[in-house]
Amino acid sequence: MKNKKVQIPQIIICIYLLILLVVVNVIGIPIVGIINESFIKWAMNGVLVLSLVPMINVGAGMNFGMPIGISAGLIGLCIAIELRLQGVIGFITAMIVGSLIAIVFGLCYSKILNRLKGKEEIIGTFAGFSFIPIMNFFWTLVPFKNRQMLYPVGGKGLRPKISLKNYFEGILDNSLVVKIGEFQIPVALILFFLILCFLIQYLYRTRVGHVMTAVSENEKFAQISGVNINKYRTKGIILSTILAAIGICVYSQSYGFVELYDGPFMMAFPAVSAILIGGASSKSATVKQVLIGTYLLQTTYLLSIPVANAILVPEITEVLRMIITNGIILYAFLYKGGSKKYGKI
C-alpha cells in the first residue's frame, strides 16, 4: 500500500511520456534525435538534482535554497572567464573556485537552517530568493575587465547572459562522443555525471554517510547515541551547496551561456520535482532515484517542445513544464509525510 503510493507520480509521468511519444511519432519527428538530446539533458540537469541528496539524507529536507549554491558556481564561472581560461583548464578552475565559494556560502546557509529545524523548506525558499538580489549587487558592481562578459553599452556590470563560446562551451558534451549508427552518446558528459553519482553513492557506504542517514531517519535516536546533529547537518548542507555549484557549471557548459541575475531564481523547483518523480521523499533519497527521476522529467520536457510547436502555441511547453514541476511538488507535500498527526492526545 505504502509502496504503491510512492509510485503514483512515476506512473503519471510514464503515461504522459508515452502519450507524448505517440504524438511525436504521429507528427513524424525523428525519435533518434530526441533520444540523443535526452542523454545530454539528463546529465546536464542531473548534477543539480544530485545536489539535493546530501541535504535530504541529513534531515534538512528538499533544498529549495539551491540558488545559493548555484550563485557560488556562477561566481566560479565568471572568475574563469575573467581570467580568460579556456577549455578544460577553464572548466576545472570554474568548478574549483565555485566549490570553494560554496563552502563559505554553505556554512552561512547551514547556520540559518540549523537554527530553524523542521522549517528548512520554507526558510530555504526565501533564503534562496533573497540571495538573488544580493548577488545582483555583486554582478553589477564587480570590477571585472573582460569585455565579453560586460554590458556592451557602458561597459559596466556583467551582462545577464554570457556566452561561453570562446571558453568551454560543450566541453563535456562534445568530448568523447561515441557514435553507434545514428545514436550519439556524449561519453565524457555522462561519465562525469556518473562519477559524481558514484562518489555520493560511496559516501553512503562510509561512516559519515551511515550516520547522516540515521540523523535524517530519527534525529532523537542519533542524539541519544551521541551524534552531534548540527555538525552532520552542516556537513550535509555544505556538500549540497558544493554540488549545486558544480551542477551549474555542468549545466552552463551544455547550455552554452552563463545566466546571471534572475537566472537561478526558479532552478530549485525542477530539480526537486525530478527527485520526487524518482521516488524520493523529503527524508530519504538515493542516487538511483536521481538517475531515474531526472531522465523521466527531462525527457518529458524535451518531448513536449515539438508537440507544442505542432499545435502552434510554443509557450505551452514552458507552461506544461511548470505544471508538471509544481504539481508533483504539491502532491509530495500532501501525501508524503506532509500531514503528520498532531500531538498524541
Binding site: R207, H210, T213, N218, K220, F221, Q223, G226
Partner: peptide
C-alpha cells in the same frame, strides 16, 4: 520507538550503528 531505534532500517544497522560511529 521514538528515540531508541531506527524503525525503518534493517536490524544490522540498528545493532552496529553506535559502534560504527564511536
Amino acid at each position: 520507538k521514538e528515540m531508541g531505534l531506527l524503525l525503518d532500517s534493517p536490524i544490522w544497522k540498528n545493532i552496529v550503528f553506535s559502534s560504527c560511529h564511536l
